[in-house]
C-alpha cells in the first residue's frame, strides 16, 4: 500500500512550471492520435494499393505487389530509422516549423506506409470473399473497371475484411510506440523509458501502468471490430 502511495507521488510529480513531469495520459493521447493519423494514411494508401493489385494493368499490379512485399517484410523499426536517418537527416525532408513537428509527421508517414501493406493484404482477403460473378455482372451492365471496383467489389471487400482490418489496426495501436525511434518523445514508450530511468525502484509498476493502459484501449477496439464484422457481413 505504501509502495502504491509512493508510486502515485512519483507519477504525479510536477515540473517547476506546474505541468506534470510524466504526462502518462497525455502520452497515451499522443499514441491514439498517431493511430488515427497513421490509420487514415494506411487505409487510403492500402485501398489504392489493393485497387492496383486487382487491376487489369500488369505494371500497376507489379508496383503494388512490390510495395506490399517491401513494407511488409522490413521491420517497422527499420522503416522508422529510414524515415529519420535517410528521409530527414540525409534528404533533409522538412515540413517547416519545429523539428518535433517533422518527427511527428514522418512518424505518421512511416507508420502509414508500413501498415498500408497490411491493410492492402487484409483487403485482398476481403476481395477473395466476393464471388467472381459479382465483378462479371458489373462488367456485363457496362460499368468500367474503376466503377465496378468502387461500387461493387470494394464495398463488399471492405465488409468482408473488417476482422483482418481490425487486427491490423490493433497492431498499429501498439506499433505507434515505435514512433520513439523517429524521435517522437511525448509518446508512451518514450515517457515510460524516462520514468524507468529516474524511478528504477518502481519498474514493475511502471510496466503495469502502460500494459494496463494499452489493454484498456485495445479491448474495446477489438470488441468493436468483432461486432462490426458480424453486423456488416454481406449476406449471400
Amino acid at each position: 500500500m505504501e509502495t502504491l502511495t509512493q508510486y502515485w507521488e512519483f507519477v504525479t510529480q510536477k515540473k517547476p512550471d506546474g505541468t506534470l513531469l510524466y504526462d502518462v495520459l497525455g502520452a497515451f493521447w499522443v499514441n491514439i492520435q498517431l493511430t488515427l493519423w497513421a490509420g487514415a494514411v494506411a487505409m487510403v494508401l492500402g485501398t489504392i494499393i489493393l485497387a492496383m493489385r486487382i487491376s487489369p494493368i500488369v505494371s500497376l499490379r507489379a508496383v503494388a505487389t512490390f510495395f506490399t512485399n517491401i513494407f511488409r517484410d522490413i521491420p517497422l523499426t527499420v522503416v522508422m530509422l529510414i524515415m529519420w536517418l535517410v528521409i530527414w537527416t540525409q534528404l533533409g525532408v522538412s515540413f517547416g516549423g519545429k523539428m518535433s513537428t517533422d518527427f511527428y509527421i514522418l512518424a505518421i508517414i512511416g507508420l502509414g506506409l508500413y501498415h498500408a501493406s497490411f491493410i492492402a493484404e487484409a483487403l485482398r482477403s476481403g476481395v477473395n470473399t466476393v464471388p467472381l460473378g459479382q465483378a462479371e455482372a458489373a462488367r456485363a451492365i457496362g460499368l468500367t473497371f474503376m466503377q465496378s471496383a468502387r461500387m461493387i467489389v470494394l464495398p463488399q471487400a471492405f465488409r468482408g475484411a473488417i476482422a483482418p482490418i481490425g487486427n491490423t489496426i490493433i497492431a498499429l495501436i501498439k506499433n505507434t510506440t515505435v514512433a520513439s525511434v523517429m524521435g517522437v518523445a511525448t509518446e508512451t514508450s518514450a515517457v515510460m523509458s524516462g520514468m524507468i530511468e529516474t524511478g528504477a525502484n518502481f519498474v514493475l509498476l511502471i510496466f503495469l501502468t502502460f500494459a494496463i493502459g494499452y489493454v484498456l484501449i485495445v479491448i474495446p477496439v477489438g470488441m468493436f471490430f468483432t461486432w462490426a464484422s458480424r453486423i456488416l457481413a454481406v449476406k449471400r
Binding site: 460473378g133 459479382q134 455482372a137 456485363a140 457496362g142 460499368l143 461493387i152 463488399q156 465488409r159 454481406v234
Partner: peptide, 24 residues
Amino acid sequence: EGKQLAMLRAEVGMVFQSFNLFAH
C-alpha cells in the same frame, strides 16, 4: 478492354446461371 467495351457491354444484357445480383 476499356470504355468502348463497357459501352458495348451495356447494349448486351446478360443473365447468369448463378444470378450474380449485387449482394450488398
